[in-house]
């Protein structure tokens, strides 16, 4: 009898604990309706900014406004979908001078922990795998907005930025001292599952 009580106590505690966790809803990144963008920005000679993007990607995240630190995010990018609006450059970016997309067709980001900074801002730590190299990096993220959409769904949207050196992921082509680092800008809208 005493054992049963302890068991039910544990079960109840687990339920309570679970309840505080389970408010985090799961979302699918809306790459189908293309309300999501994976963009990059790199300096050209130090004189201007070049923007490009990846046209094909998918991903999921879980988010709980009350517990942003419980959030998780996972993104898969088709590296061959790189698009800088210039056929010759895109072809070049796909070669082994840059992304080597034949050998490394996927890039992925998998979050490991999220540190809430308040005001809808957070730092998302995680592993980026690009060109076969996996490295930890931090995405500075901001909650843009969320709520019911006009078509019966529920959406939440974020922007995130991170920077890294091309060299850190084994990209061999040297573009000059002003262009060693690239910035990735994620503009992500998720639809609650």
């Amino acid at each position: 009898m005493a054992l049963n009580k302890i068991q039910s106590l544990i079960a109840g505690a687990a339920l309570l604990a679970g309840a505080s966790f389970s408010n985090a809803a799961d979302y699918v990144i809306d790459s189908e309706g293309m309300h999501a963008f994976v963009q990059f920005k790199i300096s050209h000679l130090g004189y201007s900014w070049l923007y490009g993007r990846f046209n094909k990607f998918d991903g999921t995240f879980s988010y709980d406004a009350a517990h942003p630190e419980m959030s998780k995010v996972s993104v898969n990018i088709d590296t061959s979908s790189v698009d800088s609006n210039h056929a010759e450059r895109d072809k070049h970016i796909r070669t082994d001078d840059f992304l080597d997309v034949k050998k490394f067709p996927k890039a992925t980001f998998q979050s490991s922990r999220v540190v809430d900074k308040g005001n809808g801002e957070a730092t998302i730590y995680g592993a980026l795998t690009l060109r076969g190299v996996t490295k930890e990096l931090a995405i500075e993220a901001q909650h843009v907005g969320g709520g019911d959409d006009p078509w019966g769904g529920y959406r939440d949207g974020f922007v995130g930025k991170t920077r890294f050196k091309l060299k850190d992921f084994g990209i061999p082509k040297y573009l000059g001292p002003a262009s060693e680092e690239i910035e990735i800008i994620l503009s992500i809208e998720g639809v609650r599952k």
Binding site: N85, H86, A87, E88, D90, K91
Partner: peptide
């Protein structure tokens, strides 16, 4: 085709 593949 390499040069003009994206419309330019």
């Amino acid at each position: 085709l390499i040069v003009t593949a994206k419309g330019s």
